[in-house]
């Protein structure tokens, strides 16, 4: 019962957001503010995540395949394919569930419990359009951009790790990466990051928007937004893989 009610409230919020997404004038300024917060400000952490993911992948694949009778280029293929199809989207999704999801839920939660959302509404603002729409839009617009960043730095990091550790020469790495490069994988990863952006921002907005109970309530909303965001990302990852592969 409770879950159904939550789902209903969540869907209603999404419907309101969709309906009010036409009021561009209301959220234009906020949209750019959010695009910067979600996208531009997340670039450094995503670069870091990408580099480490790629280099760890390379070192570990090289270690695991050390004695196997396979060409070194296979490592390049493994690393770049894993990054493009899965890791760039999912790991950055999980990181951003913490960074973006927590921020959004805290912001909206605080605005809710300090009556700022009521204040907006009472002034005649559409608070969903003003607060939720730009955040969700920023999520679905910027996550694919961050996916690109994560992919490039992931593969670059893998290449560099192979070179500096001496386990995989760059030429072999690239050969494998190119040989097994299927454009559909990039489209798939792109789609994933799009979905993850939607999930993280909508869940965080929902939790924040309906927060209640003062500072503790905001804390609860933030925790739930982060945890549920991560769970739903993994779930969506599975569903997408089952549906589209």
């Amino acid at each position: 019962m409770y879950a159904l009610k939550e789902l209903g409230k969540y869907t209603t919020l999404l419907y309101q957001a969709l309906r009010s997404s036409t009021e561009f004038g209301t959220y234009r300024k906020n949209l750019f503010h959010e695009l910067v917060k979600v996208g531009y400000d997340s670039v450094p952490i995503i670069i870091l995540v990408g580099i480490f993911t790629g280099s760890v992948m390379t070192l570990q694949s090289a270690y695991q395949l050390e004695f196997a009778f396979i060409p070194l280029s296979t490592i390049g293929a493994i690393v770049s394919e894993s990054i493009l199809i899965e890791l760039a989207a999912v790991i950055s999704g999980l990181v951003l569930a913490g960074k973006v999801g927590a921020r959004v839920a805290t912001e909206l939660g605080t605005m809710r419990v300090s009556e700022q959302i009521d204040a907006l509404e009472s002034m005649g603002f559409n608070s969903v359009s003003f607060l939720v729409v730009p955040r969700v839009l920023a999520g679905i617009l910027m996550f694919p951009v961050l996916y690109i960043v994560a992919s490039v730095f992931g593969i670059g990091g893998g290449l560099a790790a192979g070179y500096f550790s001496g386990s995989v020469p760059p030429a072999d790495f690239l050969k494998g990466a190119r040989m097994f490069f299927y454009p559909w994988n990039v489209v798939f990863g792109f789609l994933k990051s799009f979905v993850f952006g939607f999930i993280i921002t909508t869940v965080a907005c929902y939790k924040g928007y309906y927060a209640k109970g003062g500072a503790e309530g905001v804390g609860r909303a933030t925790t739930e937004a982060t945890v549920m965001g991560c769970i739903y990302i993994l779930l969506a990852d599975f569903i997408l893989a089952a549906l589209l592969l």
Binding site: E115, S122, F125
Partner: peptide
């Protein structure tokens, strides 16, 4: 409906208990 409701709301000013200033 929601749009007319918001128009009507603009006839009101509200001072909230916690002021509800945008921080």
């Amino acid at each position: 409906d929601y749009v007319s409701q918001r128009k009507l709301r603009q006839k009101f000013g509200i001072l909230f208990q916690g002021s509800a200033l945008f921080d």
